[in-house]
Computed example of a mutant assay.
Amino acid sequence: MTVFDRVKKLADKQGISINTLEERTGFSKNYLYSWKKKVPSGNNLKVIADYFGVTTDYLLGRTDNPNPIQERVPDDLDKMLDNAMTFGGKPLTEIDRAAIRAYIEGRQSSK
């Protein structure tokens, strides 16, 4: 599967055409179609990955999982926080746990 095939699949899931995607991301008309035969630059690949909320590795075919971190974080994070200690060797407080979880999940802490 080419980079273009993966982009087309993602566009189809959102019910948009490749031309619409090009307009929304600022690419020239038919630019994404050129990805059928060539690998895009890193910056352009990142634009599309950010638009769809997937990894560039997914677009490049290095993984079939578009969001590997999002699927792993809840289970692994809970286990990590259960075993985590402060710098002084004391268990984390609930406030510390919430702040760490928010940071790792990419949202603002509610301190």
Score class of each variant (00 low, 15 high):
Gly89Gln: 07
Asn44His: 07
Phe87Tyr: 04
Ala11Glu: 01
Gly106Lys: 12
Leu32Glu: 05
Leu60Pro: 09
Gly26Trp: 15
Arg97Pro: 02
Ser28Ala: 07
Gln70Val: 05
Leu60Cys: 03
Gly15Val: 13
Ile18Arg: 03
Leu10Glu: 12
Ala49Asp: 08
Lys37Ser: 14
Tyr31Arg: 02
Ala84Pro: 00
Asn43Phe: 07
Gly15Glu: 08
Ile95Gly: 12
Asp82Tyr: 05
Glu71Lys: 15
Leu45Glu: 09
Leu10Ser: 12
Glu71Pro: 01
Val3Gln: 03
Ile16Cys: 15
Lys29Glu: 13
Gly26Asn: 13
Val3His: 01
Ala84Cys: 00
Pro68His: 13
Lys8Val: 05
Arg72Ser: 13
Thr20Tyr: 12
Met1Thr: 11
Gly26Arg: 14
Val39Thr: 13
Tyr31Lys: 10
Val39Cys: 06
Ile48Met: 12
Met1Lys: 13
Ile16Asn: 14
Glu22Ile: 05
Glu23Val: 02
Gly15Thr: 10
Asp76Ile: 10
Ser28Val: 02
Gly15Trp: 14
Arg62Pro: 06
Lys38Val: 08
Lys38Asn: 04
Leu32Gly: 08
Arg6Asn: 14
Ser41His: 00
Ile69Thr: 08
Asp78Glu: 14
Arg24Phe: 00
Ile69Phe: 11
Gly89Ala: 02
Leu92Arg: 04
Leu21Tyr: 03
Val39Asp: 03
Gly106Ile: 14
Arg62Leu: 11
Pro68Asp: 14
Phe4Glu: 02
Tyr51Met: 04
Ser110Tyr: 02
Tyr33Phe: 10
Glu105His: 06
Gly53Lys: 11
Asp76Met: 02
Thr86Glu: 06
Val73Asn: 01
Val3Pro: 01
Glu23His: 11
Pro40Glu: 12
Ser110Thr: 12
Ala11Gln: 05
Ala99Ser: 11
Asp5Trp: 00
Phe52Arg: 11
Val39Pro: 00
Leu92His: 11
Tyr51Asp: 04
Asn43Leu: 03
Asn65Arg: 03
Thr25Ser: 14
Lys37Val: 02
Asp50Ile: 08
Ser28Glu: 05
Arg107Ala: 06
Asn19Gly: 09
